[in-house]
Amino acid sequence: MTTWADLLFLLVLVLDLFVLASSRLRAGIRAVAAQGGLLALLPVVLAGPATETRHVVALALGALAVKGVGIPWLLARATRESTVNREVAPLVGFAPSMVLGALGIVVAVWYAGPIPLPVPGKHPLLVPTAIGTAWTGLLLIVTRRKAVGQVLGFLVLENGVFVLGLLLSDFMPAMVEVGVLLDLFAAVFVMGLVMFDIQRAFSSLDTEKLASLKD
């Protein structure tokens, strides 16, 4: 089972890098959807004999529905309707942001060891993946100009939080699940409103234009 979990974590991280490197918003959305699907598998793979099957299944299905299908579909529709389909000039270039992301992940892998965990015996890549994914999300939010790119960043960030949530799911299963999913939903909702408003005001999804609102 460890190998499969290894592979899953690795793929999640590779998808992080892919999102950082891709300039096409559509490809980015697809990658985030795939990442959501992979995350849905994680609770299943990580489930030990002690965990309750019902919770695992609920968490997996919920994650799949929301992260793997629902939100990506909404985003894809939003991009189809707007004219934007490519991040043109990010504040930090694609290759440098990928290298930055990789550095963050390396640091996470290196220093996750000493972090004291409430639950011993978890998978060694769990915390690094969570931190690395959250770091990727933050990078995306900071470096991208287009609102869709920033929403992708939020989603990746939430994916990181979700992975970290898995750590606690043994303690307070329901709370974590509901909390994580709701949090996510709220974030997307807010961003959706923001996108809609920017679009209506400027007929564009470039957040740089918000700067012109100053006096």
Binding site: A21, M98, V99
Partner: peptide, 9 residues
């Protein structure tokens, strides 16, 4: 560079 990042990882 992505290939380097993968094998470096």
């Amino acid at each position: 560079i992505g290939a380097s990042v993968l094998s470096g990882f």
